[in-house]
Amino acid sequence: MSFDLNAALSSMHRAILGMVSSNLRGIRIEEKNGCLWIYFYYENSPSEEEEEMVNFIYTEFVSDFPDQKTDFKVISLPRNEMIPKIGEAVYLRYGELGPV
């Protein structure tokens, strides 16, 4: 299966509706070795509720790509550290783009 970035971004945008907490700094997606990786960046360690939201988002996303290998990582990253610019941004909290 070939990777369709627009379809993946659209699917992820739908999946995150109503699932963004104030602790979530950003979500990025990338294709690496045939696998779609989703990275969830939190300012502080996610709460149990936030972990459930990540699982919901991931389940919603993968249901649109049943034949695509996918995985995700949840990363706690303090506010003073920049989110790595890997893959494509799905969501970035205000101010996460860095200096313009």
Score class of each variant (00 low, 15 high):
Met1Asp: 11
Met1Arg: 10
Ser2Ala: 13
Asp4Thr: 04
Leu5Gln: 13
Ser10Gly: 15
His13Asp: 15
His13Val: 00
Arg14Glu: 15
Met19Glu: 15
Ser21Asp: 07
Ser22Thr: 14
Asn23Leu: 08
Arg25Ile: 08
Gly26Leu: 04
Gly26Pro: 05
Ile27Tyr: 03
Arg28Gln: 06
Arg28Trp: 00
Arg28Glu: 05
Ile29Glu: 02
Glu30Tyr: 04
Lys32Met: 09
Lys32Gln: 12
Asn33Arg: 11
Cys35Tyr: 07
Leu36Ile: 15
Glu43Phe: 03
Glu43Ala: 13
Pro46Asn: 07
Ser47Arg: 00
Ser47Trp: 07
Ser47Tyr: 06
Glu49Leu: 14
Glu49Tyr: 10
Glu50Gln: 07
Glu50Pro: 02
Glu51Asn: 09
Glu52Tyr: 07
Asn55Met: 15
Phe56Ala: 14
Thr59Ala: 14
Phe61Glu: 03
Val62Asp: 04
Ser63Met: 12
Asp64Tyr: 09
Asp64Glu: 14
Phe65Asp: 02
Lys69Met: 10
Asp71Ser: 15
Asp71Phe: 11
Lys73Met: 12
Lys73Ala: 14
Val74Gln: 02
Val74Lys: 02
Val74Tyr: 04
Ile75His: 05
Ile75Cys: 03
Ile75Arg: 00
Leu77Met: 10
Arg79Phe: 12
Arg79Pro: 02
Ile83His: 01
Pro84Gln: 07
Ile86His: 10
Glu88Thr: 14
Glu88Tyr: 13
Ala89Met: 04
Arg93Leu: 11
Arg93Pro: 01
Tyr94Lys: 15
Gly95Pro: 03
Glu96Asp: 10
Gly98Asp: 08
